Computed example of a mutant assay.
Amino acid sequence: MNLTVKTYPNNTVPKLNYDVLIENQPDGGVSATVLGLPDFKSSGVTKEEALEKLIQLLQERKPEIVTLEIQPPKTEHPWMKFAGMFKDDPQFDEVLAYIEADRRELDAQMEEYYRQLDAEDEAK
Rank of each mutant, 00 (worst) to 15 (best):
Val95Tyr: 03
Glu105Asp: 06
Thr67Ala: 14
Pro26Ala: 14
Gln25Met: 15
Lys124Pro: 02
Glu111His: 13
Lys15Pro: 08
Pro90Ile: 04
Thr46Pro: 02
Asn2Lys: 15
Asp19Trp: 10
Pro38Gln: 15
Glu94Leu: 13
Val5Ile: 10
Val95Ala: 12
Glu60Thr: 14
Glu120Leu: 15
Glu94Val: 08
Lys62Pro: 00
Leu16Arg: 09
Phe82Ile: 06
Leu68Gln: 02
Gly29Phe: 00
Thr46Leu: 01
Met80Cys: 05
Asp93Val: 11
Asn11Pro: 02
Pro73Ile: 05
Arg103Ser: 13
Ala32Ser: 01
Leu21Glu: 15
Thr7Leu: 13
Asp88Cys: 02
Glu112Ala: 13
Leu21Arg: 12
Thr67Trp: 07
Arg61Val: 12
Tyr98Arg: 15
Thr75Ser: 11
Trp79His: 04
Lys53Gln: 12
Ala83Gly: 03
Asp88His: 09
Val5Ala: 07
Gly28Glu: 04
Asp89Trp: 09
Lys62Ser: 10
Pro72Val: 05
Met1Val: 09
Thr33Leu: 03
Leu54Glu: 00
Val34Gln: 00
Glu52Ser: 15
Val45Phe: 14
Met1Phe: 05
Ile70Gln: 07
Glu64Ser: 10
Gln71Leu: 05
Gln56Cys: 08
Thr7Gln: 06
Val30Tyr: 00
Glu112Phe: 09
Gln109Ile: 08
Ile65Leu: 06
Leu106Asn: 08
Val5Asn: 07
Lys62Phe: 02
Ser31Pro: 10
Thr4Lys: 08
Arg115Thr: 08
Asp107Glu: 15
Asp102Gly: 03
Glu105Tyr: 11
Asp27Arg: 14
Ala32Met: 00
Met80Pro: 01
Asn24Phe: 08
Tyr113Gln: 15
Leu54Lys: 01
Gln91Ile: 07
Thr75Lys: 11
Tyr18Ser: 04
Glu111Ile: 14
Thr46Phe: 00
Val20Leu: 03
Ser43Gln: 15
Phe92Lys: 08
Lys6Pro: 03
Tyr98Glu: 13
Gly84Trp: 06
Lys87Cys: 04
Gln59Lys: 10
Ala101His: 12
Glu94Pro: 01
Asp89Val: 10
Thr75Gln: 15
Thr7Lys: 05
Arg104Ile: 00
Gln59Tyr: 09
Asp39Asn: 13
Ala83His: 11
Val20Asn: 01
Tyr113Asp: 04
Ser42Phe: 02
Ile70Leu: 12
Glu120Gly: 05
Asn11Gln: 05
Glu23Leu: 02
Met85Pro: 01
Glu122Ile: 07
Thr4Ser: 11
Thr7Ala: 08
Leu3Asn: 03
Phe40Pro: 00
Gln56Phe: 14
Glu120Tyr: 08
Val34Asp: 01
Asp88Pro: 02
Pro63Ala: 06
Thr7Gly: 00
Leu51Ala: 04
Pro63Trp: 07
Gln91Leu: 08
Pro90Trp: 03
Asp107His: 06
Lys124Val: 03
Lys53Ile: 03
Ser31His: 00
Lys47Val: 00
Lys87Ser: 08
Leu21Trp: 11
Glu52Pro: 02
Val5Asp: 03
Gln59Ser: 06
Asp118Lys: 15
